[in-house]
Amino acid sequence: MRTLVVLAVAALTATLAPVARAVDHSKGYPGYCRNATGVTVVVDFQQLGGTTIVRCDPRPTRGTGLDAVKGAGFQIEGVVRWGEGFICRIENRPSAVEEIPVAGDDGYREACRDTPPASAYWSYWHAGNNCQWEYSQWGVKNRDFVPGGFEGWSFSLNATADTNPTPRIAAVRPGTTGQPCDAPDEPEPTTADPNARQPGAAGAQNGAGGGSGGSTETSTAPGRDALPPPKPRTGSPDRAEADDPSGNVAFTGGEKARDVTEVVREQSGASDYAPWAAGGAVVLLGLATWLTARRRKRSREA
């Protein structure tokens, strides 16, 4: 009972609270991280269109890739089936009304119900400072970020396992150009278990760690539904040097990004009164049902 009350209050305050701006500006700050604490998160929309966003999550404690991208202020959405274990929208891209030219289905729309197809999804990269981008072998909840390093998100459209596009920002913090790449070795996953954690990372003690997703079916291995485990990168040992920072595309810190909730609301064409009308209709119908049932019961017994 108390839970319901809390829930109702939370829902109410959420609607009444000042609307959060897209890119939660209370979390993280725009631009690269200034020092080796925290992690820089790069989001490259690639063919979706839109300016790349770079923000820093300054947290001094350890955290997973999911903590990093949320801590940097990005607003993400996971699939209904796996929860936030698989991210399908960042900053509401690709949105529910957006049509993506996937090979074989020109008007494909991402409904975020199940795992996105391998031809249109957000690929997850990471790199130590001054290192080459590496395609992550672990899921976003199953590995810790590299302090002082980079977390990268790049939208992969119609690419194969070997040709996923890397983020077009070099993983180099300003002022550290020329330093050697210093990232710890990340052992590869040995099983296909979505809940296995990267060894060496701190175990899952508190809640936000590598728990099961929001659904009950996570005890089955991803199998047919998830992406095939990524092939190990050939010929690129993880100690390669980073790209030249002068090849970066234009980026912003997301200061002027539009409010996600408002965008979603606009896209959906939702009306403010429709929920009230629905609620009223349900109450009215319930009342009518009860009255009709009573009347028919009386006439039946008469």
Partner: peptide, 24 residues
């Protein structure tokens, strides 16, 4: 096909789910 967002409300930000007139 037209307003898919209403049919599957997102749970990212806790709020009353959106609704438009056509499906209702």
């Amino acid at each position: 096909g037209v307003n898919p967002t209403n049919l599957n409300p997102s749970l990212v930000v806790l709020s009353w789910p959106l609704l438009s007139w056509p499906p209702l």
